[in-house]
Design a protein around this nucleic acid. Structure first.
Lengths: 196, 196
DNA sequence: CTTTTCATGTAATCTGTTACATGATTGC
DNA sequence: GCAATCATGTAACAGATTACATGAAAAG
Protein backbone atom coordinates (compact mmCIF):
# COMPACT_ATOMS: atom_id res chain seq x y z
CA UNK A 1 0.00 0.00 0.00
CA UNK A 2 1.49 3.32 -1.04
CA UNK A 3 0.50 6.85 -0.10
CA UNK A 4 -1.34 8.96 -2.63
CA UNK A 5 1.01 11.62 -3.96
CA UNK A 6 -0.08 15.03 -2.71
CA UNK A 7 0.42 17.19 -5.78
CA UNK A 8 1.01 20.95 -6.02
CA UNK A 9 1.29 21.37 -2.25
CA UNK A 10 4.21 23.65 -1.51
CA UNK A 11 6.00 24.98 1.55
CA UNK A 12 3.51 27.80 2.03
CA UNK A 13 0.71 25.23 2.05
CA UNK A 14 2.43 23.33 4.87
CA UNK A 15 2.75 26.64 6.68
CA UNK A 16 -1.02 27.05 6.50
CA UNK A 17 -1.55 23.51 7.78
CA UNK A 18 0.88 24.35 10.55
CA UNK A 19 -1.21 27.37 11.60
CA UNK A 20 -4.36 25.27 11.56
CA UNK A 21 -2.91 22.91 14.20
CA UNK A 22 -3.61 25.63 16.79
CA UNK A 23 -7.26 26.17 15.86
CA UNK A 24 -9.56 26.28 12.84
CA UNK A 25 -9.28 29.61 11.04
CA UNK A 26 -10.15 31.52 7.87
CA UNK A 27 -8.15 33.00 4.99
CA UNK A 28 -8.05 36.59 6.11
CA UNK A 29 -6.77 35.63 9.55
CA UNK A 30 -4.30 33.04 8.24
CA UNK A 31 -2.78 35.71 5.98
CA UNK A 32 -2.09 38.07 8.87
CA UNK A 33 -0.60 35.23 10.93
CA UNK A 34 1.62 33.62 8.33
CA UNK A 35 3.05 37.01 7.33
CA UNK A 36 4.83 37.11 10.70
CA UNK A 37 7.23 34.41 9.60
CA UNK A 38 6.75 33.81 5.87
CA UNK A 39 6.18 36.48 3.22
CA UNK A 40 2.84 35.82 1.48
CA UNK A 41 -0.23 37.68 0.31
CA UNK A 42 -3.90 37.04 -0.27
CA UNK A 43 -3.47 36.43 -4.01
CA UNK A 44 -1.60 33.26 -3.12
CA UNK A 45 -3.46 32.11 -0.07
CA UNK A 46 -7.09 32.00 -1.21
CA UNK A 47 -6.30 29.80 -4.23
CA UNK A 48 -4.01 27.63 -2.07
CA UNK A 49 -6.74 27.02 0.49
CA UNK A 50 -9.04 25.90 -2.34
CA UNK A 51 -6.31 23.53 -3.51
CA UNK A 52 -5.89 22.13 -0.01
CA UNK A 53 -9.63 21.41 0.05
CA UNK A 54 -9.35 19.64 -3.33
CA UNK A 55 -6.54 17.53 -1.92
CA UNK A 56 -8.58 16.70 1.18
CA UNK A 57 -6.00 18.15 3.58
CA UNK A 58 -8.43 20.68 5.04
CA UNK A 59 -12.20 21.12 5.12
CA UNK A 60 -14.22 24.27 5.66
CA UNK A 61 -17.46 25.55 7.03
CA UNK A 62 -19.16 28.75 5.85
CA UNK A 63 -19.70 31.00 8.85
CA UNK A 64 -22.08 33.96 8.84
CA UNK A 65 -21.29 37.06 10.88
CA UNK A 66 -23.41 40.06 11.80
CA UNK A 67 -22.16 43.34 10.29
CA UNK A 68 -19.17 41.58 8.73
CA UNK A 69 -18.69 39.55 5.56
CA UNK A 70 -19.15 35.79 5.74
CA UNK A 71 -16.04 33.71 6.17
CA UNK A 72 -14.84 30.20 5.44
CA UNK A 73 -13.44 28.54 8.52
CA UNK A 74 -10.93 25.83 7.63
CA UNK A 75 -9.91 22.86 9.76
CA UNK A 76 -7.26 20.18 9.33
CA UNK A 77 -8.51 16.78 8.20
CA UNK A 78 -6.89 13.55 9.40
CA UNK A 79 -5.16 13.39 6.03
CA UNK A 80 -3.92 16.94 6.54
CA UNK A 81 -2.48 16.10 9.95
CA UNK A 82 -0.69 13.09 8.49
CA UNK A 83 0.75 15.15 5.60
CA UNK A 84 2.02 17.71 8.11
CA UNK A 85 3.84 15.09 10.19
CA UNK A 86 5.42 13.59 7.06
CA UNK A 87 6.65 17.03 6.03
CA UNK A 88 8.19 17.81 9.41
CA UNK A 89 10.28 14.64 9.30
CA UNK A 90 11.62 15.37 5.81
CA UNK A 91 14.94 17.26 5.34
CA UNK A 92 14.44 21.00 5.78
CA UNK A 93 15.33 23.37 2.93
CA UNK A 94 18.06 25.94 3.57
CA UNK A 95 16.74 29.39 4.50
CA UNK A 96 16.53 31.97 1.69
CA UNK A 97 17.08 35.61 2.57
CA UNK A 98 16.58 38.38 0.00
CA UNK A 99 17.75 41.71 1.33
CA UNK A 100 18.12 44.58 -1.09
CA UNK A 101 20.29 46.41 1.45
CA UNK A 102 22.88 43.65 1.13
CA UNK A 103 23.12 44.22 -2.63
CA UNK A 104 23.43 47.96 -2.09
CA UNK A 105 26.06 47.39 0.58
CA UNK A 106 28.22 45.53 -1.91
CA UNK A 107 28.72 48.68 -3.97
CA UNK A 108 28.34 51.16 -1.10
CA UNK A 109 31.76 52.67 -1.85
CA UNK A 110 30.24 54.15 -5.02
CA UNK A 111 28.11 56.52 -2.93
CA UNK A 112 29.03 59.28 -0.52
CA UNK A 113 29.50 58.12 3.11
CA UNK A 114 26.61 60.48 3.92
CA UNK A 115 24.29 58.55 1.56
CA UNK A 116 25.47 55.29 3.08
CA UNK A 117 24.68 56.71 6.50
CA UNK A 118 21.09 57.62 5.64
CA UNK A 119 20.58 54.25 3.95
CA UNK A 120 21.59 52.43 7.13
CA UNK A 121 19.82 54.88 9.42
CA UNK A 122 16.55 54.10 7.62
CA UNK A 123 17.08 50.39 8.10
CA UNK A 124 17.91 50.87 11.77
CA UNK A 125 14.60 52.68 12.22
CA UNK A 126 12.82 49.78 10.55
CA UNK A 127 14.45 47.21 12.82
CA UNK A 128 13.76 49.23 15.97
CA UNK A 129 10.05 49.36 15.11
CA UNK A 130 10.14 45.62 14.47
CA UNK A 131 11.73 45.02 17.83
CA UNK A 132 9.07 47.10 19.60
CA UNK A 133 6.30 45.14 17.87
CA UNK A 134 7.92 41.91 18.98
CA UNK A 135 8.16 43.07 22.58
CA UNK A 136 4.46 43.97 22.47
CA UNK A 137 3.68 40.51 21.14
CA UNK A 138 5.78 38.93 23.86
CA UNK A 139 3.97 40.94 26.54
CA UNK A 140 0.60 40.01 25.08
CA UNK A 141 1.55 36.35 25.27
CA UNK A 142 2.64 36.75 28.90
CA UNK A 143 -0.71 38.31 29.78
CA UNK A 144 -2.68 35.71 27.89
CA UNK A 145 -0.88 32.82 29.56
CA UNK A 146 -0.54 34.70 32.86
CA UNK A 147 3.09 33.68 33.26
CA UNK A 148 6.16 35.84 33.44
CA UNK A 149 8.76 33.35 32.28
CA UNK A 150 7.65 32.21 28.83
CA UNK A 151 10.35 29.54 28.74
CA UNK A 152 8.06 27.63 31.11
CA UNK A 153 5.51 27.06 28.31
CA UNK A 154 5.14 23.28 27.97
CA UNK A 155 6.33 21.55 24.80
CA UNK A 156 2.80 20.54 23.85
CA UNK A 157 1.21 23.94 24.45
CA UNK A 158 -0.33 25.50 21.32
CA UNK A 159 1.77 28.58 22.14
CA UNK A 160 5.12 26.78 22.32
CA UNK A 161 5.99 27.13 18.61
CA UNK A 162 4.90 30.76 18.45
CA UNK A 163 7.04 31.54 21.48
CA UNK A 164 10.12 29.96 19.89
CA UNK A 165 9.52 32.05 16.76
CA UNK A 166 9.19 35.31 18.69
CA UNK A 167 12.55 34.55 20.27
CA UNK A 168 14.06 33.74 16.87
CA UNK A 169 12.85 37.05 15.48
CA UNK A 170 14.21 38.95 18.49
CA UNK A 171 17.61 37.29 18.11
CA UNK A 172 17.72 37.89 14.35
CA UNK A 173 16.64 41.52 14.45
CA UNK A 174 19.01 42.28 17.30
CA UNK A 175 21.93 40.93 15.29
CA UNK A 176 20.86 42.88 12.18
CA UNK A 177 20.55 46.01 14.27
CA UNK A 178 24.01 45.53 15.72
CA UNK A 179 25.49 45.04 12.28
CA UNK A 180 23.81 48.22 10.97
CA UNK A 181 25.02 50.23 13.95
CA UNK A 182 28.53 48.88 13.57
CA UNK A 183 28.52 49.77 9.86
CA UNK A 184 27.15 53.23 10.62
CA UNK A 185 30.07 53.86 12.97
CA UNK A 186 32.48 52.87 10.20
CA UNK A 187 30.81 55.34 7.85
CA UNK A 188 31.03 58.08 10.48
CA UNK A 189 34.70 57.33 10.90
CA UNK A 190 35.29 57.64 7.14
CA UNK A 191 33.26 60.83 7.01
CA UNK A 192 35.35 62.34 9.79
CA UNK A 193 38.58 61.32 8.03
CA UNK A 194 37.45 62.96 4.80
CA UNK A 195 36.79 66.22 6.56
CA UNK A 196 40.34 66.46 7.86
CA UNK B 1 14.68 66.43 -20.02
CA UNK B 2 13.57 63.21 -18.34
CA UNK B 3 15.38 59.92 -17.95
CA UNK B 4 14.43 57.00 -20.16
CA UNK B 5 12.51 54.45 -18.10
CA UNK B 6 14.61 51.32 -17.61
CA UNK B 7 12.09 48.54 -18.06
CA UNK B 8 12.13 44.98 -16.72
CA UNK B 9 15.23 45.58 -14.60
CA UNK B 10 14.69 44.04 -11.19
CA UNK B 11 16.56 43.85 -7.90
CA UNK B 12 18.67 40.89 -9.03
CA UNK B 13 19.74 42.93 -12.07
CA UNK B 14 20.96 45.72 -9.81
CA UNK B 15 22.81 43.07 -7.83
CA UNK B 16 24.65 42.05 -10.99
CA UNK B 17 25.49 45.69 -11.78
CA UNK B 18 26.71 45.98 -8.21
CA UNK B 19 29.11 43.05 -8.69
CA UNK B 20 30.38 44.56 -11.93
CA UNK B 21 31.54 47.71 -10.10
CA UNK B 22 34.48 45.69 -8.77
CA UNK B 23 35.62 44.38 -12.13
CA UNK B 24 34.26 43.10 -15.45
CA UNK B 25 33.08 39.51 -15.17
CA UNK B 26 31.12 36.72 -16.89
CA UNK B 27 27.87 34.90 -16.11
CA UNK B 28 29.31 31.77 -14.56
CA UNK B 29 31.43 33.79 -12.15
CA UNK B 30 28.67 36.30 -11.35
CA UNK B 31 26.37 33.39 -10.40
CA UNK B 32 28.81 32.02 -7.85
CA UNK B 33 29.37 35.48 -6.40
CA UNK B 34 25.81 36.70 -6.16
CA UNK B 35 24.75 33.42 -4.51
CA UNK B 36 26.70 34.49 -1.43
CA UNK B 37 24.14 37.15 -0.61
CA UNK B 38 21.16 36.69 -2.91
CA UNK B 39 19.55 33.36 -3.92
CA UNK B 40 19.71 33.00 -7.71
CA UNK B 41 20.55 30.43 -10.35
CA UNK B 42 21.84 30.31 -13.88
CA UNK B 43 18.38 29.99 -15.43
CA UNK B 44 17.71 33.54 -14.27
CA UNK B 45 21.08 35.14 -14.75
CA UNK B 46 21.95 34.38 -18.37
CA UNK B 47 18.67 35.82 -19.70
CA UNK B 48 19.00 38.83 -17.35
CA UNK B 49 22.48 39.64 -18.62
CA UNK B 50 21.11 39.61 -22.17
CA UNK B 51 18.37 42.00 -21.04
CA UNK B 52 20.91 44.30 -19.44
CA UNK B 53 22.78 44.41 -22.74
CA UNK B 54 19.50 45.26 -24.55
CA UNK B 55 18.97 48.09 -22.08
CA UNK B 56 22.50 49.35 -22.59
CA UNK B 57 23.43 49.02 -18.91
CA UNK B 58 26.27 46.59 -19.61
CA UNK B 59 28.32 45.60 -22.65
CA UNK B 60 30.27 42.40 -23.26
CA UNK B 61 33.26 41.03 -25.02
CA UNK B 62 33.58 37.40 -26.14
CA UNK B 63 36.75 35.94 -24.63
CA UNK B 64 38.38 32.75 -25.87
CA UNK B 65 40.19 30.47 -23.43
CA UNK B 66 42.48 27.51 -23.99
CA UNK B 67 41.05 24.20 -22.70
CA UNK B 68 37.96 25.95 -21.40
CA UNK B 69 34.74 27.12 -23.02
CA UNK B 70 34.54 30.67 -24.33
CA UNK B 71 33.01 33.26 -22.05
CA UNK B 72 31.27 36.60 -22.31
CA UNK B 73 32.92 39.21 -20.14
CA UNK B 74 30.49 41.95 -19.16
CA UNK B 75 31.35 45.51 -18.08
CA UNK B 76 29.23 48.36 -16.77
CA UNK B 77 28.42 51.11 -19.25
CA UNK B 78 28.12 54.75 -18.17
CA UNK B 79 24.37 54.33 -18.32
CA UNK B 80 24.68 51.24 -16.09
CA UNK B 81 26.72 53.16 -13.52
CA UNK B 82 24.11 55.94 -13.47
CA UNK B 83 21.24 53.44 -13.05
CA UNK B 84 23.09 51.87 -10.14
CA UNK B 85 23.54 55.19 -8.31
CA UNK B 86 19.85 56.04 -8.84
CA UNK B 87 18.86 52.68 -7.38
CA UNK B 88 21.05 53.06 -4.28
CA UNK B 89 19.42 56.37 -3.39
CA UNK B 90 15.88 54.98 -3.69
CA UNK B 91 14.09 53.57 -0.61
CA UNK B 92 15.24 50.04 0.17
CA UNK B 93 12.71 47.20 0.20
CA UNK B 94 12.24 45.32 3.49
CA UNK B 95 14.21 42.06 3.71
CA UNK B 96 12.31 38.84 2.91
CA UNK B 97 13.31 35.67 4.73
CA UNK B 98 11.82 32.29 3.83
CA UNK B 99 12.86 29.62 6.30
CA UNK B 100 11.07 26.29 6.21
CA UNK B 101 12.40 25.55 9.71
CA UNK B 102 10.36 28.48 11.05
CA UNK B 103 7.14 26.98 9.64
CA UNK B 104 8.03 23.61 11.11
CA UNK B 105 8.84 25.23 14.45
CA UNK B 106 5.36 26.69 14.64
CA UNK B 107 3.84 23.21 14.91
CA UNK B 108 6.85 21.54 16.57
CA UNK B 109 4.68 20.42 19.51
CA UNK B 110 3.02 17.94 17.14
CA UNK B 111 6.23 15.90 16.93
CA UNK B 112 8.23 14.04 19.54
CA UNK B 113 10.86 16.17 21.31
CA UNK B 114 13.38 13.71 19.86
CA UNK B 115 12.27 14.57 16.31
CA UNK B 116 12.46 18.26 17.17
CA UNK B 117 15.97 17.69 18.47
CA UNK B 118 17.22 16.05 15.26
CA UNK B 119 15.55 18.77 13.16
CA UNK B 120 17.44 21.48 15.01
CA UNK B 121 20.65 19.47 15.22
CA UNK B 122 20.68 19.26 11.42
CA UNK B 123 20.26 23.01 11.12
CA UNK B 124 23.00 23.61 13.68
CA UNK B 125 25.35 21.51 11.54
CA UNK B 126 24.42 23.58 8.51
CA UNK B 127 25.12 26.88 10.29
CA UNK B 128 28.44 25.65 11.70
CA UNK B 129 29.61 24.75 8.20
CA UNK B 130 28.47 28.19 7.02
CA UNK B 131 30.47 29.85 9.76
CA UNK B 132 33.60 27.91 8.86
CA UNK B 133 33.26 28.92 5.21
CA UNK B 134 32.89 32.54 6.28
CA UNK B 135 35.98 32.40 8.45
CA UNK B 136 37.91 30.96 5.51
CA UNK B 137 36.68 33.80 3.34
CA UNK B 138 37.67 36.33 5.96
CA UNK B 139 41.15 34.85 6.21
CA UNK B 140 41.49 34.84 2.45
CA UNK B 141 40.63 38.51 2.38
CA UNK B 142 43.19 39.24 5.10
CA UNK B 143 45.88 37.47 3.09
CA UNK B 144 44.92 39.16 -0.15
CA UNK B 145 44.97 42.63 1.39
CA UNK B 146 47.87 41.76 3.71
CA UNK B 147 46.18 43.39 6.71
CA UNK B 148 45.10 41.83 9.94
CA UNK B 149 42.41 44.29 10.95
CA UNK B 150 39.89 44.32 8.11
CA UNK B 151 38.01 47.25 9.64
CA UNK B 152 40.91 49.34 8.30
CA UNK B 153 39.76 48.76 4.70
CA UNK B 154 39.11 52.22 3.23
CA UNK B 155 35.56 53.23 2.31
CA UNK B 156 36.40 53.40 -1.39
CA UNK B 157 38.24 50.07 -1.55
CA UNK B 158 36.60 47.52 -3.91
CA UNK B 159 36.69 45.13 -0.95
CA UNK B 160 34.87 47.39 1.49
CA UNK B 161 31.33 46.22 0.60
CA UNK B 162 32.30 42.56 0.56
CA UNK B 163 33.89 42.92 3.98
CA UNK B 164 30.73 44.49 5.42
CA UNK B 165 28.69 41.60 4.00
CA UNK B 166 30.97 38.94 5.49
CA UNK B 167 30.48 40.61 8.88
CA UNK B 168 26.72 40.72 8.36
CA UNK B 169 26.65 37.00 7.55
CA UNK B 170 28.79 36.18 10.60
CA UNK B 171 26.46 38.17 12.87
CA UNK B 172 23.33 36.63 11.35
CA UNK B 173 24.51 33.05 11.43
CA UNK B 174 25.83 33.42 14.96
CA UNK B 175 22.41 34.61 16.14
CA UNK B 176 20.63 31.78 14.29
CA UNK B 177 23.03 29.30 15.82
CA UNK B 178 22.42 30.66 19.30
CA UNK B 179 18.67 30.43 18.81
CA UNK B 180 18.91 26.83 17.61
CA UNK B 181 21.10 25.86 20.54
CA UNK B 182 18.78 27.57 22.99
CA UNK B 183 15.78 25.74 21.47
CA UNK B 184 17.66 22.45 21.57
CA UNK B 185 18.23 22.88 25.30
CA UNK B 186 14.52 23.49 25.78
CA UNK B 187 13.76 20.25 23.92
CA UNK B 188 16.27 18.36 26.05
CA UNK B 189 14.62 19.74 29.16
CA UNK B 190 11.21 18.56 27.97
CA UNK B 191 12.63 15.17 27.03
CA UNK B 192 14.11 14.78 30.50
CA UNK B 193 10.82 15.78 32.14
CA UNK B 194 8.91 13.20 30.10
CA UNK B 195 11.22 10.45 31.23
CA UNK B 196 10.51 11.09 34.92
C1' DC C 1 34.27 5.03 -16.46
C1' DT C 2 31.75 8.41 -13.95
C1' DT C 3 31.29 12.68 -11.74
C1' DT C 4 32.61 17.41 -11.25
C1' DT C 5 34.00 21.78 -13.19
C1' DC C 6 33.75 25.01 -16.68
C1' DA C 7 30.62 27.73 -19.68
C1' DT C 8 26.32 29.07 -21.95
C1' DG C 9 21.77 28.93 -23.21
C1' DT C 10 16.30 27.73 -23.53
C1' DA C 11 11.75 25.74 -22.07
C1' DA C 12 8.44 24.25 -18.90
C1' DT C 13 6.68 24.85 -14.68
C1' DC C 14 5.92 26.76 -10.29
C1' DT C 15 5.75 30.69 -7.05
C1' DG C 16 4.89 35.39 -5.91
C1' DT C 17 3.12 40.23 -6.69
C1' DT C 18 -0.01 43.55 -8.20
C1' DA C 19 -4.13 44.89 -10.10
C1' DC C 20 -8.98 44.17 -10.83
C1' DA C 21 -13.45 43.14 -8.66
C1' DT C 22 -17.21 43.37 -4.96
C1' DG C 23 -19.48 45.25 -0.88
C1' DA C 24 -20.71 46.48 3.92
C1' DT C 25 -19.11 48.99 8.08
C1' DT C 26 -16.36 52.01 10.93
C1' DG C 27 -13.42 55.81 11.94
C1' DC C 28 -11.43 60.34 10.59
C1' DG D 1 -16.76 62.43 1.69
C1' DC D 2 -12.50 59.23 1.98
C1' DA D 3 -9.68 55.85 3.68
C1' DA D 4 -9.22 51.75 6.33
C1' DT D 5 -10.87 47.25 7.97
C1' DC D 6 -13.15 43.07 7.09
C1' DA D 7 -13.70 39.22 3.80
C1' DT D 8 -13.16 36.66 -0.54
C1' DG D 9 -11.94 35.83 -4.97
C1' DT D 10 -9.58 36.04 -10.12
C1' DA D 11 -6.32 37.60 -13.75
C1' DA D 12 -2.18 39.37 -15.51
C1' DC D 13 2.29 39.68 -14.95
C1' DA D 14 6.91 39.07 -12.91
C1' DG D 15 10.27 36.20 -10.66
C1' DA D 16 12.36 31.69 -9.52
C1' DT D 17 13.28 26.70 -10.07
C1' DT D 18 14.09 22.65 -12.55
C1' DA D 19 14.82 20.18 -16.50
C1' DC D 20 16.53 19.90 -21.12
C1' DA D 21 20.49 20.73 -24.11
C1' DT D 22 25.59 20.86 -25.50
C1' DG D 23 30.47 19.84 -25.03
C1' DA D 24 35.32 19.61 -23.55
C1' DA D 25 38.64 18.74 -19.77
C1' DA D 26 40.05 17.25 -15.34
C1' DA D 27 39.73 14.55 -11.28
C1' DG D 28 38.51 10.50 -8.87
Amino acid sequence: MHKREVIGINTLAYGLLSLLTVSPSYGYDLISKIKLFWPANHGQIYPLLAKLVDNGLVSYEQVQQCDKPDKKVYSLTESGKAALLDWIAKPTAAPALRDELALKTFCIRKTEPATARSLFAARIGFYKQNLKDLQDKENLLKEKLAIDDLSQIPFDSPYFGGYLLIQKAVWNITSDLQWCEWALKLFEKHLAERQL
